[in-house]
Design a protein around this nucleic acid. Structure first.
Lengths: 342, 342
DNA sequence: GAATTGTGCGCAATCGATTGCATTTAATTC
DNA sequence: GAATTAAATGCAATCGATTGCGCACAATTC
């Protein structure tokens, strides 16, 4: 186990008979260092495999070259893809990414943000947990001067950058699609949690109905946690209520799969009897029978947009830029589950 | 934007009229510091919200309290769950986790490992990419004295710790199950990549057949990249070959879903005509019609085991511990796709 | 040739925390 | 009460890289 000692600028300095200052400047391409010395230093550095000590650099410069990400869970296609987008963008700029998960738990989210601040990340990129209502932990980051950006699930009353998709538009389009396919009694699954994405999805549903002269029937709107089980439950409730419905548009792919299972169990045909549409474009929506219509949240571009916004902030740190909000347009995917006639 | 200056031990020292050394020792509970001083220091620290500068600590102690993780992608249930297991274990011990992705690309994996070494993580936990055959980049880490552990997809000829599941056992059991259900001509999807997990899964399949006196027909064994499309292709090939088969056991959930879709398209009933079993327990296996039998890779316990092994190494650093291999027993899940009679 | 400007590099402090080696003060021993 | 030992804290160097200031020497100007 040949535990090599790491090379430092002092090793290079000794080797060349110069001082560490000169070595440092040479490596950083300082104008006051002669071309000859720079060449020598760079060669020596390569030779002894010198790599700067990131802690020394961070300590001195106050920059860690680390970005903290907080997501509810990486175990979801959407989030892991956003992370991927961020990571690719950041790595190209020699930044690393620390990923943390809040598991939709407020306490955990708080701890994790604190930990990132302690770790002195250069920025924090967050998608809020479902149970987060207070924002004290984020104010801390802002006070510490750490750039903060929200994506997807955003905090609306904090003066920080945001990247979201056009949940309203997408929701409107999907509902419109259902209407145009001939469905008239469209139920809606949503979350009771007051987060922007859910509110906007509801709004899109509602306004599409209104635009096409259909009434919004509160008995067809079901609130739940939108997981698989919740979808089953909600479908069962719909059937029990005996209010006729011929389509369901859910704010989540998980619950629409639950509904699909429940409807099948009752011998109800999809899409002939009931049309189904979800939200999120989780991979499994393609694999169900029939494949489910859903909304793709353009996750990788979102990750890139978030990362780009971060680096923009970094470059202009202190310069009190106007707070940006980027809205990406999502893609509505029509699959067999909403084809009434075909 | 009240960019607060971070408090240091010197601030505490000045405040109390003592030196930074004493403050440092007090905070670290050094025995030679009086109880009274410790109390004063801790109170002052709380009051001015002192948080140690992690870079200064890391620079001085040579420990970063960071763990690097390298996985092919977090965008897979299995990997993101392992990560979750590691993260939970590590966070409890005040360690952070840097997650990187190799995207199954050798070059990217190399870069990412180098970057982690540069970032001076205290350990690197790796699941190999599919295209990784050379291991030079890992030797570097070992030379640098950084604990290295593999999980799931391991490098077999490196003297480092490993955590794997009993792929062989699981594969054997699943094949056995198919046989006991009455399937006799069991096809097998596997990867041509010479990675332990695939070799073991094949071995389990083969030996189960042999144990039950069934012949291993090479025409029923198909190699591919095991993605969804590959599953479709392989199923089509099987059908074209006109070699009778009544079950498929795939080394991956993705390709078995592809097969399911293809078979359905040809009017072949699952599980009556053909039984299907996958590997990985991806969430969607539960949502297909019929739900698919598969193998759960006990991902969270695996993450915990990996993390635990890391901390064990850390405690005994230098002490040349014997290289450990932990084999976790996985859980074989029987669902409707393999119930020939029921 | 004296004065000015420029070039190339070294000195030493700094970032914040830790620690071996004093030094001071208090407690104990004879 | 002087001498010894123990307890509590301070001093200063250190981890590795960066940077303002200053010094030497060379090049330029008049």
């Amino acid at each position: 186990m040949g535990k090599k000692e790491k090379a430092t600028i002092h090793d290079i300095a000794t080797k060349l008979g110069i001082t560490a200052s000169t070595v440092s400047r040479a490596l950083n391409n300082h104008p006051r260092i002669s071309a000859k010395t720079k060449k020598l230093v760079n060669e020596a550095a390569k030779e002894i495999d010198y790599k700067p000590n990131s802690f020394a650099v961070a300590l001195r410069n106050g920059r860690s070259k680390l970005i903290g990400i907080v997501v509810p869970t990486v175990n979801r296609n959407f989030f892991s893809s956003v992370v991927r987008g961020i990571e690719e963008f950041a790595n190209e700029r020699d930044y690393r990414v620390i990923i943390t998960q809040s598991y939709d738990d407020y306490e955990k989210e708080k701890q994790t943000v604190d930990a990132l601040i302690d770790a002195q990340v250069d920025g924090i990129l967050v998608s809020l947990g479902k149970t987060t209502s207070r924002h004290q932990h984020f104010k801390k980051a802002i006070d510490a001067g750490i750039p903060l950006i929200f994506f997807d699930r955003v905090a609306e009353n904090l003066p920080v950058g945001q990247v979201v998709i056009d949940d309203y538009q997408a929701s409107f389009k999907m509902t419109e699609h259902l209407i145009k396919e001939g469905y008239r009694h469209i139920a809606h699954f949503n979350s009771p949690v007051p987060v922007n994405i859910f509110k906007e999805r509801y709004r899109g549903y509602k306004e599409a109905l209104e635009t096409y002269g259909l009434s919004v029937d509160p008995r067809l709107i079901l609130h739940s946690n939108l997981q698989l089980e919740d979808g089953r439950d909600s479908a069962r409730k719909l059937l029990d209520r005996k209010v006729p419905f011929d389509a369901i548009f859910s704010a989540s792919d998980y619950s629409i799969v639950g509904a699909l299972q429940e409807l099948k169990k009752h011998g109800i045909r999809v899409p002939e009897d009931v049309g189904l549409a979800g939200f999120g474009n989780e991979p499994f929506t393609e694999f169900t029978d029939p494949p489910l219509s859903t909304v793709d949240q353009v996750s990788i571009p979102m990750g890139q947009a978030v990362a780009k916004m971060f680096f923009d902030l970094l470059e202009n740190q202190g310069k009190a830029l106007p707070v940006q909000q980027i809205v990406l347009s999502s893609e509505v995917i029509f699959r067999a589950s909403t084809r009434k006639f075909s």
